[in-house]
Amino acid sequence: MIEIRIHGRGGQGTVTAAELIAEAAFFDKKFSQAFPFFGVERRGAPIEAYTRISDQPILLHSEIYEPDFLIIQDPTLLKIKNTFRGIKKNTSILINTEKDISSLPLLPKNIQIKTVPATQIALKILGKPIINTVMLGAFAGAFKLISLESLKKSILERFSQEIALKNIKAMEEAYNS
């Protein structure tokens, strides 16, 4: 079973991102589950959401403590120790930042870390700093855990045609970056 934890701030579509990954995995014919950390919803507050993907039915209803993948949607969350709790030697991390990894503070050592300038891509294509679908494109491209086709399908199901197509364009750019 693969466990993914996504960190973001209220309003960044963190919970939607977890749901879209899980739905894409479902379209990839896997078992999957997505749920948020059940906090009080406020714009700007740190938010967590979880996705599990497996070849077997998923019965576990516990939060994710030792993620295989960590997606950090907002670089200001890097300063919060809690963001990195439970990471393992083989945890892979994806961070939204324009900066070089070496200039980022407080990153765990000897761990696979990838970055994507998701905010830049979102501003360029969507005209708004809505980064969740961009991050998903980068996630699919970097780790090949879910297929781009299934991600597109889940975005088309979720949003209106116009919004979905824009998001898919942004997602594809991040996928190929």
């Binding site: 749901e19 078992f31 589950q33 997505a34 749920f35 059940f38 998923i58 209803h61």
Partner: peptide, 12 residues
């Protein structure tokens, strides 16, 4: 039905 653990969880 467990609140959140089931009601807010996405699955097939």
């Amino acid at each position: 039905v467990d609140g959140f653990a089931l009601t807010h969880t996405f699955e097939a």
